[in-house]
C-alpha cells in the first residue's frame, strides 16, 4: 500500500527531474524574456547537446559531468552564432519570421541528426550511474542528486551574471526597453546573440546532466522541450524565478501522475496542463498581465 516513504521518494525524484526541466526552461524563458519570441529550435538544440555529450564520452572518454564545462562554452558560441548569423538576419525583426526561422531550424537540425545517426536509441553505461543514496526514508540515485546540485549552481551562476555583470545589466535593459537600451549605446544585436548563447549553454549543461540516466535519439530533446514550454508558460514568459519553481512543480506533478496513473498518461497530463494554462492564464501563475 501507499507508504509515506514511497510517496516521499516519488516527490524527491520528481524534484530532481524537475530540476533538469527547470534548466531547460530557464534557457527558453531567458530567450523569450529578451527576444520576446519562443525559440522552437530549443528541443532540437537540446538533442544536439545530448549527442555532443554522447560523442564526448564515447569517442574521447570524457565523463559527462566534466563535459559540461567544455560543452557549455561551446554551446554558448553555437547559440551566439545562430542568432547573430542565421535567426537575426533572416527574421529582420519580424516576429512571424522568427517563429518560422526557429521552426525551420528545428526541423533541419532534428532531421539532420536522424539522417546522420538514424533513429537508434543510444545510452551510455557509467560505473556510478546506479549508485544510490539514502535520504531519510527515501532512496535516490546519485546522478539525480548530482543533477539537482548542478542545476542549483548553474542557476546561481546565471543569476550572478544577470545581476552583477555589465552584460547582465545590458540584457536586462534590452529586455525591459529595447529602444531605450539602444539609445543608451547598447548593441542590441550583440545582446540578443549573447542571450541566445546563454539559453543554449543551459541546454548543454542540461544534456550533460541527463546523459548518465537518459537515452539519446534524434527526437530525445522534444519530450523535454514540450515540458519546458509548459513550465515557461506556467511560470510566466520571461520570468527566471517562474521557470525554476515551475520546473520543480511540473517534475513533482509528473512523478506523482506516473506513480498513480502510469507512464503513458503522464504526458497527456502535461499537455492538458499546458493547454489549460495557455487558455486560462496565458501570463502564467507568476507573470503579470499586460
Amino acid at each position: 500500500m501507499l507508504s509515506p516513504a514511497i510517496l516521499f521518494t516519488a516527490v524527491l525524484n520528481g524534484l530532481m527531474t524537475g530540476a533538469i526541466y527547470a534548466l531547460v526552461a530557464l534557457g527558453l524563458t531567458l530567450i523569450y524574456g529578451v527576444l520576446h519570441i519562443i525559440n522552437f529550435a530549443h528541443g532540437a538544440l537540446l538533442t544536439v547537446a545530448l549527442f555532443a555529450a554522447l560523442i564526448a564520452y564515447q569517442t574521447f572518454g570524457i565523463d559527462p559531468y566534466l563535459a559540461a564545462f567544455l560543452l557549455a562554452p561551446l554551446f554558448f558560441g553555437l547559440g551566439y552564432l545562430l542568432q547573430r548569423l542565421v535567426i537575426g538576419p533572416a527574421a529582420r525583426g519580424e516576429d512571424r519570421n522568427i517563429l518560422l526561422v526557429t521552426l525551420g531550424l528545428a526541423v533541419l537540425i532534428e532531421n539532420a541528426l536522424l539522417y546522420v545517426f538514424r533513429a537508434d536509441t543510444r545510452t551510455i553505461n557509467l560505473p556510478y550511474a546506479f549508485e544510490v543514496f539514502e535520504i531519510g526514508p527515501a532512496v535516490v540515485a546519485l546522478p539525480r542528486l548530482a543533477a539537482l546540485g548542478a542545476v542549483a549552481v548553474t542557476t546561481l551562476i546565471l543569476w550572478a551574471i544577470m545581476r552583477y555583470t555589465s552584460t547582465g545589466r545590458a540584457i536586462r535593459a534590452v529586455a525591459k526597453e529595447k529602444l531605450g537600451a539602444q539609445l543608451a549605446g547598447i548593441d542590441v544585436a550583440h545582446i540578443y546573440a549573447v542571450t541566445f548563447g546563454l539559453g543554449t549553454a543551459c541546454l548543454a549543461v542540461a544534456a550533460c546532466l541527463l546523459l548518465p540516466t537518459y537515452y539519446v535519439n534524434p527526437g530525445a530533446g522534444n519530450a523535454f522541450v514540450l515540458v519546458a514550454f509548459t513550465i515557461v508558460v506556467l511560470g510566466g514568459m520571461g520570468s527566471l524565478v517562474g521557470a525554476l519553481l515551475g520546473g520543480l512543480l511540473i517534475g513533482v506533478v509528473e512523478s506523482l501522475c506516473g506513480f498513480f496513473l502510469g507512464e503513458s498518461l503522464g504526458q497527456i497530463g502535461i499537455f492538458t496542463i499546458f493547454i489549460l494554462v495557455l487558455l486560462l492564464r496565458p501570463h502564467g501563475l507568476f507573470g503579470e498581465a499586460t
Binding site: V86, A91, N97, V101, G104, V107, A112, Y115
Partner: peptide, 20 residues
C-alpha cells in the same frame, strides 16, 4: 530517413531569409 524534412527545414529558413 529524415532527408526530405531536413531539406524542408533548410528551405524554410532560406525562403524567410531571402524571399519572405
Amino acid at each position: 530517413p529524415g532527408l526530405d524534412l531536413m531539406i524542408y527545414g533548410g528551405v524554410l529558413v532560406l525562403v524567410i531569409a531571402l524571399a519572405p
